[in-house]
Design a protein around this nucleic acid. Structure first.
Length: 239
DNA sequence: ATTAAGATTGGCT
DNA sequence: GCCAATCTTAATA
């Protein structure tokens, strides 16, 4: 891509807000709830990443809930450790970790201070700063709408790594969570299904329908099971 | 001190 | 669909 094109939507000032909708900071109390409730509530929220060069924004369209030490799929299962300290802290902070020695994943800490809980951001739809996202994603970037179609892809597109672990997503200018007043909760159909890649946790925890998605989004990390289509999520456990 | 496994992705058959 | 990449973490000795 040309230099002109790569900066076409990153002109300083053009995205001084990065957004042209009606946004406000996310309410911390909204996140002081159990992980599954928070995961559903975060669908439709906006995440804004700002650094010295770029301002990028994306709408969260897919999430997964991870509970405390009792949840055998959660990193909190080992109790409070150096890595998972943020999960046990106050809601609204970031928990960022490295998987497979290669990829980063971003979580929004939820539940009350002292109780572990986090929501993995599994996919987001790019809204602004697309050229910055594409530059970071490299050759395998894919289409614009799928630049952040996966948990590690989201961190790549938004340039999120462990430097941001533990920061307050409601006050830190580097990474912020916003609520779209025009989309207080997803208006379309919500999908829910089992969490991805947690078979190691055993059937009791792996079968929980703690993965949530916006049905009509082109940015989902992968399809949901067909039976997961329900306007109002009803069944906690599938199969 | 050693080691097995991982909340993923992209490339290849 | 299969598999390697790459390194931190947490459990075991």
């Amino acid at each position: 891509m040309t230099a002109a094109a790569s900066h076409a939507d990153d002109t300083p000032g053009k995205y001084s807000t990065g957004l042209d909708g009606d946004y406000r900071p996310l309410d911390r109390a909204e996140l002081a709830v159990d992980a599954a409730t928070a995961a559903r509530a975060l669908l439709g929220a906006i995440i804004v990443r700002a650094d010295g060069h770029c301002r990028r924004a994306a709408r969260i369209v897919e999430t997964e809930a991870y509970a405390g030490p009792e949840d055998r799929a959660s990193h909190a299962r080992a109790g409070r450790t150096a890595r998972t300290a943020a999960m046990f802290g106050p809601p609204g902070h970031a928990y960022v970790y490295l998987v497979y020695g290669i990829h980063h994943c971003l979580n929004v800490v939820c539940d009350v201070d002292g109780r572990a809980g986090a929501v993995l951001v599994r996919a987001a739809e790019p809204l602004a700063g697309l050229a910055c996202m594409r530059a970071r994603r490299g050759a395998a970037g894919g289409t614009d709408e799928r630049l952040a179609a996966g948990p590690a892809r989201t961190c790549q597109a938004l340039d999120v790594d462990r430097e941001l672990d533990g920061i307050d997503l409601l006050t830190d200018p580097r990474l912020q969570l916003l609520r779209d007043r025009d989309w207080p909760s997803p208006t379309g159909m919500i999908l829910r299904g089992p969490r991805i890649g947690v078979t190691y946790a055993g059937p009791d925890w792996a079968s929980l329908a703690w993965r949530f998605g916006v049905a009509d989004s082109p940015a989902l990390s992968r399809p949901f099971p067909v039976e997961s289509r329900a306007a109002t999520p009803s069944s906690e456990r599938l199969a």
